[in-house]
Amino acid sequence: MHSLLKRQIDKKLKGGLNDLDIFLDAVNESYGNYESQIEMLQRAMKLSSDELFEANQRLRDEAESLKDVNKNLQSILESMSLDPELTSKNENFDSSEYIKQQSIEIIKINKQREELLVNLEKQNIALNEYAHMVSHDLKAPLRSIDTLINWFIEDNLEMMNENNLKSLNLILSNVEKMDLLIKGILNYSSVESQPGDERLIDLNVLIQDVLNIIEVPDHVAVTVKNKLPKIVGNDFRFKQLFQNLIQNAIKYNDKEKVIVEIGCLENENEIIFDVKDNGIGIPKVYQNKIFDVFSKLHNDGKSSGIGLAIVKKIIEFYRGKIWLESQESIGSTFYFTIPKDNGNT
């Protein structure tokens, strides 16, 4: 397609670089259209995330109600079997009717719970399908713009001046940012549907694999403080989890010697991991917001604002929790737990 593209560019420019502004305007207009679509996708994901949160909250409330009903029923059964005189003191007490009402209430709550679970699953499926569809539609034209701009620079390099190159490189930079954002959306939406079976993972080996994949500069020291356990899970999910935490620790660090430490503690029920750095730290007011989708403290073009949201989603998938301690200019420590019985063992 090289010759065809070149012919089309020459045809549009006619007089050479005198008409470059027309070409740049056309590309910038395309970029603006795709940015609008990205904003639409962000709004849709935000609405869907809010709906999922509300559904989860309702499930928790219903579960608590069910616990209360079960306790009441258990209390009645115990009183009837262990202490018959207790109920006989109340002349108006009808044990069979009471148990019947409790049974109806349990059936009603279970039905509501099942409906919520079905709706929650449908929303998850719809959100994933929408994210994949929009992301696929956006990636193809981005690749075309990137290829076209690079070919144009290569074929007309001798006619380029500083301003022309600056404009074209700005377009390439914006394309790269959008591509990074799209990848983040795809990773976030596919956390719960990753291919591959759950298996026993040696986290010591996994951390080394992660360090071999990411770019670790010479002034960065990443150490594992103690031997990490083996854990049942999906290899790709845990690689995403540790990769995002380690990359964040390296990226947001202003020290001459960057230190990142990984460790863990175990108790009877769970494993508590920590990833500590000596970076720039996170202000207290932002510490709860950084796990939200599309939330980022620094608009430097290096981050999609989805990395920590992916981390949180993976941990919650394994029924754990995450929190942090941080001081500005001193560093941050991210803590997260993975239950030993996380539903995959």
Rank of each mutant, 00 (worst) to 15 (best):
I213F: 03
L82D: 07
E270A: 07
Y31Q: 12
N174Q: 15
I290T: 02
D209E: 15
I201K: 03
Q42R: 15
A131K: 02
L186N: 10
S81H: 10
G320E: 03
Q102Y: 11
I314K: 09
K313N: 12
L245R: 08
N269C: 00
L52Q: 14
S65F: 06
P217L: 00
D10A: 09
I125T: 14
I213V: 12
E64Q: 11
K340G: 04
I262N: 11
F317T: 08
Q240V: 01
K276V: 13
Q42T: 01
P339S: 03
S103D: 09
S30M: 11
N70G: 02
K183T: 04
D25W: 03
S193C: 02
V222Y: 02
S36K: 13
I259T: 10
S189D: 01
K67Q: 14
I315W: 02
V258R: 05
V205A: 12
V205N: 14
R58I: 02
R43F: 09
S326A: 04
E85Y: 13
F291C: 03
L127C: 07
A131P: 07
N56T: 14
M1G: 15
K177Q: 15
N234S: 11
K313S: 06
S88G: 04
N72I: 08
S326P: 12
Q102T: 06
L142C: 09
D197C: 05
H136L: 04
L181R: 03
Q247Y: 06
Y252K: 08
N248E: 11
F273I: 07
L73D: 01
K67W: 01
N70H: 14
N156C: 05
R7L: 10
K230S: 11
S295L: 00
R43A: 13
G196W: 04
Y188G: 01
Q57A: 14
L245H: 06
N278T: 02
L5C: 03
N72D: 09
I182M: 04
D19C: 04
E256R: 07
I330W: 00
H136W: 00
L5D: 12
I246W: 10
Y252L: 13
G301Y: 06
E215K: 11
V311E: 06
E85F: 09
L165W: 08
E114G: 00
